[in-house]
Design a binder for these strands. Sequence first.
DNA 1: GAAAAAAAATAACGCCGTTATGCCATACTG
DNA 2: CAGTATGGCATAACGGCGTTATTTTTTTTC
Lengths: 236, 236
Amino acid sequence: MRPRRSKPKTRAALVDIAARLLADEGPEALSARRIASEAGSSTMAVYTNFGGMSGLVREMVYEGFARMENYFSHVTPTEDPVADMALFGRAYRHNALTNPHLYAVMFGGASLGGFSLSAEDRQYGRFTLSTVVECATRCIEAGRFRTGDAELVAHQLWTAIHGLVTLELGDYLIEPCDADRVFEAQLTSLMIGVGDTLEAATGSVASSEARLATEIEPAEPAPPTERPANDHDRTA
Amino acid sequence: MRPRRSKPKTRAALVDIAARLLADEGPEALSARRIASEAGSSTMAVYTNFGGMSGLVREMVYEGFARMENYFSHVTPTEDPVADMALFGRAYRHNALTNPHLYAVMFGGASLGGFSLSAEDRQYGRFTLSTVVECATRCIEAGRFRTGDAELVAHQLWTAIHGLVTLELGDYLIEPCDADRVFEAQLTSLMIGVGDTLEAATGSVASSEARLATEIEPAEPAPPTERPANDHDRTA
DNA sequence: GAAAAAAAATAACGCCGTTATGCCATACTG
DNA sequence: CAGTATGGCATAACGGCGTTATTTTTTTTC
C-alpha cells in the first residue's frame, strides 16, 4: 500500500522561494523558517523534501552549476581557440557576477549558518570544466598553448579566474586596480603564461570581448532544471 | 572621576581563546557563548571589549594579516627578483595552509553566522601587498617582467594564487590536478604571463622552492600582535 | 570613605536548525 | 467500494545562537 505522494508543487515552490531569497537578500535570508513561511507551509516541508537545509542548499548548488553550464554551452567554437578560451573566462565571470550569492554558496564563500556541502557536492560541478578542457586541447593542437596537459591548463585558468571573481565579489578589488582592469590583464597574461605569444594573445582576448555581449549575455537563465528529485538523502 | 578600567587580562584571554577555537574547530566554534564559557566569564565581556562578535572577528582578521606579513617579511630580496616573487607566492600559500580557518575568515570564505566584515576591514590587509609591489618593481627593472605597472602585476599574482588556495582549502582540487601540481605550474605560468621567458621563469621558480623551507617555514607564528586596543567601535 | 562610572553577571528576547508527535489525505488492497 | 496503512505536513518543543536591558560589582577619584 503505497501512500500519499507529496504534491510536487511544494518541492518546486520551496526551491523557487529559496532561490529568490538567496538572489535578492543573500545567504543570510536562507532559513528554513523564512522559506516555509513564504511558502505558506511549515518548516517540516524542508525536511520531508530535502532532509534538511543542507539538502536544499545542495539543490541550489546544482542549479548554480546548471546556469554556469548553460553559459558555457553558448561559447561556440571558432577557428581561434584562444579567443574561445578567453570567452570561457568572460562567461565564468559573467555568471558569477550575475548570480553572486549563488556563486558564493557554490564555492563555500557564503555565510551558511553551519551546514556545509559534502565532498560529492563540491566535485559535482567539475564536470563543467570538461568543455574548457576540450577548448584547451584545441589550443594545444593549434600550437597556441605550450603544455601538453589540457586538464592542467584548464585548472590553471579556472583557479586564477575564480580567485579574481571571489575577491571582486568580496569588494577586495578597488581602484586603481579594479576588477575590470585586473581581469583584462589577467586574461592576456594567462594565455601567454601557458604558451601563446603576446601579440596573438592580445588579439584573441580583444576579439573575445565583443563575443561576450553577443554570445553569452543574451543566454536566458536556463529553465528550472527539474532534477531527478533525489529526496531524502540527507547529508552528515 | 574616571572609573574602573577593564583588566587587560580579559581582553587578551578572549582573543586567545577565540583564536584557538578558530584554529582547532573552525569558524563554527566561534560563538560568543562558547568563548565566554571557556574564558569563565559571561557573554557581556565580548560586548564590552569588542562591541560584539564582529569586533572580535575583526581582531582575528588583523591577527591573520599580521601572520601573513610576518611570513612576507622573511622573503629576503636576492639578485633574482622573480625567484623572490615566486617565494612570495609560496609564502602566501604556506600561510593559508598553516592557518586555514583564519584565512577563510580573512577573505570571507568562512561560515560566520551572519556578522560580516566592514569595507575598511577588507582593505586592511591590502597594505600587505606593498612588499609584493616592490618586488614586482624590481622584476620590471631587471627586465624580467614586461608590463610597467607593478601594482597591477602584484594584483594578478595575488588573485591567481588566492583562487588556487581558496579552492585547495575547500577540497576542490583533487587528482590528477591536485593543488601541488596546479600551484607549481601556475607559478611558472604567471611569471611567463607577465613577461619572463620560459627558461628564466622555470629556473627562478625552481630555485624558490628550496628557499621556502629555509626562509619561510621556520618563521615563528609572530608575537601576539598587541594591537592599539580600539575598543567599542562596533560595526553595523 | 563616599560617590561616580564602567565592567561584568544575570536573564530575557527573538532568531536559528532540528525533531518528536500526531493528524489526515491518499493510494493501494480486498 | 470500503478499509487501512503510509508518508507528507502542521504543531510545538528543545537547545543554541547574537544581542540587549537590567542589575550588581569593582575600581578610580575626590
